[in-house]
Nucleic acid binder design. Sequence first.
RNA 1: CGGGGCGUAGCGCAGUUUGGCAGCGCGCCGCGUUCGGGACGCGGAGGUCCCCGGUUCAAAUCCGGGCGCCCCGACCA
Length: 575
Amino acid sequence: MRMSQMFGKTLRDDPSDADTAGHRLLIRAGLVAQVAAGVYSYLPMALRSMRKIENIIREEMNAAGAQEVLMPVIQPVELWRQSGREEAFGPTLLHLNDRRERQMVLAPTHEEAVTDLARRHVRSYRDLPINLYQIQTKLRDEARPRAGLIRVREFHMKDAYSFDTDQDGLDVAYDKMVQAYWNIFRRSGLDVVAVEADSGAMGGSDSQEYMLLADTGEDELVNCPACGYAANVERARSRYAPAPDTGEPNDIEIIDTPNMTTIAELAEFLSIEESQTLKAVFYVHDGEFIFVAIRGDLDVNEVKLANALGGGELRLASDEEVKAAGIVAGSASPVGIDNVRKLGDLSATQGANYVAGANDAQKHFRNVNHGRDFQLDDVIDIAKAEEGHGCPRCDEGTLNFSRGIEVGHVFKLGTKFSEAFSANYVTQDGEEKPMFMGCYGIGVGRLLGAAIESRHDDEGIIFPASIAPYDIHLVSLNPGDEEIASAADEVYNSLTSAGLEVLFDDRDESAGIKFSDADLLGMPLRVTVSRRSMRDGRNAELKLRSRDRDSATIVPIVNAVQEARGLLNELSGAN
RNA sequence: CGGGGCGUAGCGCAGUUUGGCAGCGCGCCGCGUUCGGGACGCGGAGGUCCCCGGUUCAAAUCCGGGCGCCCCGACCA
């Protein structure tokens, strides 16, 4: 491609409304153009990169035995009512009416469509297992699009869906997809890690997310350097120090704690550890007031809590609601409050002789013990993993915290959708049973955005070779010089006819502009033909984007193809 | 959805406080010089000052309403 002909220009200045480095580079390099909040046009270079990502995905999906299909973006709302997800998605689901006033939706994902498809075509266990995938547009009216391609409202996703006769079959299908995912991320040249994930509104059992580590990532992750345990904080378990050993339960007593409303104040006032206190947090879940007790030094993980409550709307209770429940905020007590539903974290039931509120702004109880002094309606693990907590899986590790961008997510759905849609098959015994499903997604555009977010320097993008729009950025300097121009053309032709993909900067621009643009655009290999390179014979200069300026090498033009290949191979080996 | 910010040429911005010729840099077009890390000279084009309404002799500027975009949070398969 000759750059003089290419659509999409680089910008000299950073766009004012881009915050993250990746977003800035996407705009400055002329890869995308914003149309509305979270809605983008993809220009030629971005599209080339996305096509390469898609092809890697396609090859790995096909190799894993999945078959490509294409399902509609526009779907009758009835499908979504049947699964119950019209409500679950809420305003994120885009609705529209067709000319006959039939209610339609624009699909944010395709579990409904694919389950409907499978139930029409699968009759018998002989038709299973199958795995269907597509690479296709999704629409989600996100409340807050952000960071360029990281969270958008219209995007391309590869989504695959497996159908099996039973849980064992699902486990096999899931493991195959997991393996395919590792292949995809390895081939794309990106450092992706897998973490245990919350399965959210998708439901189902096992779920893993694939995360590209980046400080600007939306997700907080923990990992154990000792045993490799890794999880999204939403889901993470952790091991924390037990409360101080206070021996056998002592008699409960009431003590004065004038105007102590926070755990920190209380612990200091009494000269005890925060872990020797119990605190209470109040939520409203689908309209019901919920009292949650947890050890004073821990925090509630709201995602875990919401899951324990079986989904639905969960929010912190307002001051008025707390008061209306007859509770004194800041000194709330699990003791003697029996008119509301009381939940507790595991920590509240371990240890003894806690200090807890007395439901009086001036007083607390000492020596409060679970079972004797208060009961809980449910005891669950809802503590949030914190800095300093130990690994829940091994005894050695302390959890590390980092941030990441979710680029893939796999779920074991089980029979959630197949039961809702009566997507059944007939067993060998002639019995009708629901299919076991799994679903597996990768955001193509997000992967591109995340790649740029994680692979750049001050000058610009550093594309992994396998997903770079072009292999080579050929720069011709002194284009007014006949000899140089024809040598550059010759290099362009020989590289191109050797099957290499070349972006040829044939513009009449200064060396500074051309080199800066080459750095900004980030192709893996830069080849320069100029008076200087031709000074001692017909030579070209080769330089890898990921290396320093002085690492450039001069090679004879007749060897350019071979030398370029060598450097590119070296690079993909290093990926 | 709550909080904050912004909207003036393709991009980045000044001008708004105190109403009075719509400006600067980059980019773009033409000519010439220059030519390995964002060169220079001369000439030129480019505007619904987000939209609607109001006040005023006069509105980018003041008032009312609306829309859009960005950031923080809530939400997020």
